[in-house]
């Protein structure tokens, strides 16, 4: 008679279960779990009220607001333009489309530090793009005598975060769009709808789940982003200081508990936001099934 692992797993014929699962669990424990536990332990050394105090420090509040706010705006921009890009890539033909499609993934492949320095250089007052918005050009004059300062302001942060999140929406919407049935659109057209009406009433609702997923991914990525932002940010406390930078500052001050506290706060906020978005997704999904 066979005695296996009982209810834990159905006895499989293929060897190596213990070896592979064991190695996997040990690896995860050492690399991920134990360090995370250390993080929470450190943060809670100052107690829950200590963490709350840290969270409500003006500097921390400003940094959190900036990180989450800028990420939200950047993800929104990416949602709009990512949708547009996905549409153009799936529906239209033009020479070099394959190359264009491949280049969308550049932010995934390019090291964040490289993106950081080049964006900071481009959007600085004397940079190629920054110069276009200086006070003396006609574009810049629209924003007043000083022109529009991009680098070292929250605006620069938004631009860097837009770069970082660009591929996410495109890549989540593309497959859905590719599989979309032309028949639904033809039906709408036969009923008299304009292209625009068809798009807003038929296609967009179907794309909404993937759009939200892409937005969420871009948002989550942007919140934690460091390398691409740190050069263009300005890093002035209360104005243009992102939360990850604040963590680094605390570390350099040897305020480990403080750094851990901010990290835990960031993780908690992200978790709650992602949870809400997940709920939204499910509600939307259920609504469409009914």
């Amino acid at each position: 008679m066979r005695s296996g692992f009982g209810r834990f797993r159905s006895h499989s014929v293929i060897p190596g279960f213990g070896l592979t699962l064991g190695y996997t669990l040990v690896y995860l424990a050492v690399i991920v779990l134990i360090p995370l536990v250390a993080l929470f332990m450190k943060a809670f050394e100052i107690g829950l009220d200590g963490i709350w105090r840290v969270a409500t420090t003006p500097q921390v509040l400003a940094a959190l607001q900036l990180s989450f706010g800028a990420s939200f705006v950047a993800a929104l921009i990416n949602a709009v333009f990512g949708l547009l890009l996905a549409w153009v890539l799936v529906r239209y033909q033009f020479p070099g489309k394959r190359v264009v499609d491949a280049i969308v993934d550049l932010p995934f492949a390019l090291p964040t530090a490289v993106a950081g320095i080049v964006l900071a250089t481009l959007y600085a007052k004397k940079g190629w793009i920054g110069a276009l918005f200086a006070g003396d050009t006609w574009i810049g004059a629209l924003f007043g005598p000083q022109g529009l300062k991009i680098a070292y302001t929250p605006l620069g942060i938004v631009i860097a975060l837009t770069f970082v999140g660009l591929p996410f929406v495109v890549r989540t919407v593309q497959p859905v769009l590719e599989d979309f049935e032309a028949e639904a659109e033809e039906a709408a057209a036969s009923l008299g709808a304009s292209r625009f009406a068809t798009f807003t009433r038929v296609i967009l609702p179907a794309l909404l789940p993937s759009l939200i997923t892409g937005f969420t991914l871009a948002f989550a990525r942007a919140v934690g982003e460091y390398g691409s932002v740190i050069f263009i940010a300005g890093n002035i406390p209360m104005v243009s200081e992102i939360a990850p930078l604040l963590i680094v500052t605390r570390l350099e001050e040897f305020n480990y508990a403080g750094a851990a506290a901010i990290a835990v706060i960031m993780l908690m906020i992200s978790f709650v936001l992602l949870f809400i978005i997940n709920l939204l997704q499910r509600w939307n999904y259920a609504r469409m099934q009914a």
């Binding site: 134990i34 989550a220 934690g224 460091y226 990290a263 992200s270």
Partner: peptide
């Protein structure tokens, strides 16, 4: 768990190791 590093800021990823192995870790 395997997907976890994707939702964690790189700075936090480094932080956790400092908390474990740093001089005051």
């Amino acid at each position: 768990l395997i997907d976890l590093p994707f939702s964690v800021s790189p700075v936090i990823s480094g932080l956790v190791y400092v908390l474990l192995f740093g001089a005051q870790g």
